[in-house]
Amino acid sequence: MKKLITLAFVALSALLVGCSESSTPQEGTHYKQLPANLSTFRLPVVTEVFSLNCGHCRKMESEIPKIEELTGESIGKVHVTFNESAQIGAMIYYAAEMQLGKKPSHTMMLDLFAATQMGDGATLGDKKAAIDRAFQNRSLVSPYDFNDEQQKQLFAAMQLADDITTKGEINSVPTFIVKGKYEVITPAHQDVESIANTINFLLTQP
């Protein structure tokens, strides 16, 4: 009987250790340290790196309010400029951010995703009209109607975003930067709760 009790305690201890390990995010699996400290860019504590042209980013946008609720953090945004289509998306996003003085609302983000990712049957004119509406419905100037000064501000914002993603060596989206030091490896997570768990863990790290 004593032997059985001892074995039970060993088994229980192993189970508890296993649960502890599985709930603690692992470096190299769930997150990694960035090659450069991006704190000098004064990013929000938790910042999503995304693209309006990315289907996975569009799905993630629907989860952002939940992640904010689970982490207690207002999540900032940085738009990538990987290629020509991403640069067009960045132009649209930063045209909104610079006029608002903050990140666009969740509702506007959904409208921008929908306009940018219209189906194959949509023409360039259709997409432009949808983008124009997303801005005009909020009393904002469409990026297609920017004057020279606004264009300069827009390109400066896009250059800053490019500097952030280049120095951080961000190669895939969507992802999250935490404290300017860590990148969440989103494909390693099964659901939004596990992503929030990793973010919460990184918030406690130096």
Rank of each mutant, 00 (worst) to 15 (best):
M98T: 13
A134T: 11
T71V: 08
E97K: 15
E73A: 06
I131F: 08
A122S: 14
Y94T: 10
Y94A: 07
A122L: 13
G121K: 05
F113G: 01
M108L: 15
A86H: 05
D132K: 02
A86K: 01
A114R: 08
K103W: 04
Y94N: 10
L110H: 06
Q117N: 14
V78I: 15
K128T: 04
M108T: 05
T116W: 02
H106A: 11
L112Q: 03
G119L: 11
G119M: 11
L112I: 09
G89L: 08
G89P: 01
G101A: 14
A129Y: 04
G119C: 04
T81M: 12
S105E: 11
Y93W: 10
K77A: 07
K102Q: 15
V78M: 11
A95N: 08
T123A: 05
A90N: 09
G119S: 15
S85I: 10
G125M: 06
Q87W: 00
I131S: 01
K103T: 09
N83P: 09
A90R: 08
M91C: 13
M91T: 12
T81V: 11
H79G: 03
T81W: 04
G125C: 12
A90D: 00
G119E: 13
S74Q: 15
Y94E: 14
L100K: 14
A86M: 09
G72Q: 09
Q87C: 04
I75D: 05
M118T: 10
D132H: 07
G89N: 01
A114F: 03
G76N: 10
M108V: 06
E84L: 14
E97F: 03
G76I: 07
F82M: 09
M118L: 14
T123P: 02
F113Y: 14
I92N: 00
G101K: 13
G101V: 13
R133I: 01
I88E: 13
P104M: 06
S74I: 07
M118N: 08
D120W: 06
V78C: 05
D126N: 15
T123R: 02
A122M: 09
T71K: 05
A90M: 12
T71D: 10
G125L: 05
L112W: 04
M91L: 15
T107N: 10
G89I: 01
R133V: 09
Y94Q: 10
V80Y: 01
T116R: 03
H79Y: 02
A130H: 03
G121V: 06
A134Y: 01
K127C: 00
K127S: 11
M118A: 07
V80S: 00
I88T: 05
Y93Q: 03
K102W: 02
T107A: 15
G72M: 10
A134R: 01
D120R: 14
Y93I: 01
A90E: 07
D120G: 10
I75R: 02
A96R: 00
L100V: 12
Y94C: 06
E73K: 15
M109K: 04
A129V: 07
K102E: 14
G121H: 06
I88G: 07
S105T: 12
T116G: 08
D126L: 03
L100G: 10
L112E: 00
S74T: 15
A114M: 07
L100T: 06
A134Q: 06
V78L: 11
T71H: 07
G125A: 12
T107P: 02
G101N: 14
V78Y: 08
A96P: 08
S85G: 09
V78Q: 13
F82S: 02
Q117T: 07
M108Q: 15
T81R: 01
G76Q: 09
